[in-house]
Design a binder for these strands. Sequence first.
DNA 1: TATTGTTATACTCTATAACTATA
DNA 2: TATAGTTATAGAGTATAACAATA
Lengths: 172, 172
Amino acid sequence: MDRDDGSAPRTSASGQRVAFLLSQVGGFAADRFAERVATLGVVPGDVGLLRLIATHPGVSQRALADLLGVGPSRVVALVDGLERKGLAQRTRSETDRRHHELSLTAAGRSVLTDMRELGAAHEADLLRGLTVAERHTLGSLLATIAASHDLPPDVHPGYRSAGRPDATSPTS
Amino acid sequence: MDRDDGSAPRTSASGQRVAFLLSQVGGFAADRFAERVATLGVVPGDVGLLRLIATHPGVSQRALADLLGVGPSRVVALVDGLERKGLAQRTRSETDRRHHELSLTAAGRSVLTDMRELGAAHEADLLRGLTVAERHTLGSLLATIAASHDLPPDVHPGYRSAGRPDATSPTS
DNA sequence: TATTGTTATACTCTATAACTATA
DNA sequence: TATAGTTATAGAGTATAACAATA
């Protein structure tokens, strides 16, 4: 139990140390990111939606629900938020009047532009303890894990609710 | 999905690729962990609490609240959950009858024992795409990040609520 | 009859603040 | 008066299902 690989480090719980760190640091990153995007007047969920709309012009809410893996009513609430903030808009499709074609407003595109700077600053701060080479290594290892579990490259857990409290279990 | 990050001078990894991966994979790890611990009849938050009680025998709920960074009423709910499941118990302190000294039951200790196996299996599956050497490297890099931000070694974001939806922003 | 989007409802989780019992 | 724990209340977030409009 205590050693799950040939060369377990001395003291600690080699059992789940890395998994815990992954979840702990990932949660920390998400919290920090939320703080940062708040300065743009949006919440993290808004950002993902803005990007999807930007990369899928005229996308319908139904398609968005499928992309995110959530129910249609959830998308209504998310889009309501963007519309209230003047970042996106609904337009009835002329070919099928049941659809709403979603698009960004100028303000929405502006937020997305600002996001690039913000994202770079976020990452620079988050990884400030690592060298450039180490950042590359980390990115590569994480990408390998993501690929080995078929995680889509641009959709994030967090839209689909999960176990709320905690993260991956304490190390202690 | 399309590229929108070409603008920034790519020092190392692009704008925020690593930060996003960290949060995405971290969230995935947390979700998987939640599924696993559910087989033991507990939620992730229970596990952290069980560990803290195990490592701090007789701890008071107030001290626990401070350790977790949450309000006292939150601890009441958490401990209620453990007590209902028969994993922990409250005992009035004889020296100061305002305190409740928390301790694990035999069932609680049993769950904690099972957790070691479960945690090892969780980590093995999560990191199945990496070699043993790469797992060590990843652990080391994550530990460096955690240290550079003063993250406590055994307390997890997730007790303190944060930005619920999303994670660290989509990659785009 | 099926589908898109909306609304209504219920449920969970959490935070805040009042309250009790001790000290 | 201060502290540990509890309870009450209110708010946010989400899921499910019923619903209206359109196909």
